[in-house]
Amino acid sequence: MAQQHRPVVHPADSRRGFLAKALSIITGGLATLAPVGAGVWAFLDPLRRTKAAASYLPVTELAAIPDDGVPRQFPVIADRVDAWTGFAAEPIGAVYLRRAKGSETVEALSATCPHAGCFVEMESTGKCFRCPCHNSEFTLDGGIVAPSPSPRPMDALECRVAKNGEVEVKWQKFRAGVADKVEQ
């Protein structure tokens, strides 16, 4: 085409060409910054949200835990907020509670497996705990049965019995997969 033979103003290597290039990149970059910046800002929002401090939650009555040393599973009920939704008195997890013969103190174990967070179940024999995911086995007091994929025993939770006989458990979650019991 004839127009291909017309001269071209300031070819690519000229000084003005450089200035125009730099300006283009800066201007275009600024224009793009707004959507990307706003997006990343909103995307990072979850990092602002801190977990509420662990608190004691009423789980059951002392009388509901037979004093035979066998752990029983109880749901943990609490109000829960999921982003915009507020759930009132919802099951948010489960604990195993047990007490020894004639004892007034209750031991609590979290049902969350310390290996990778599956739900640890009681064997049907009632003799031990077993996690269905990778077969970690635990004794009735939560102790580790070697060899085990789990790096530590089941997590004991702080537990107290109130004056009115209500059993309260300090609901905490611990980091999975590590030997030390560190709060999440």
Binding site: Q3, R6, P7, V8, V9, H10, P11, A12, G17, A20, K21, L23, S24, I25, T27, G28, L30, A31, A34
Partner: peptide
């Protein structure tokens, strides 16, 4: 009619485009 010499898309036209984009974004903001 074409009266001026040709230019390259980059950076001559790109610069104008980028300024226009920034202007659009400025209006939105």
């Amino acid at each position: 009619p074409i009266t001026k010499p040709d230019a390259m898309f980059w950076p001559d036209q790109v610069l104008r485009d980028a300024v226009a984009m920034l202007a659009v974004m400025a209006v939105v903001l």
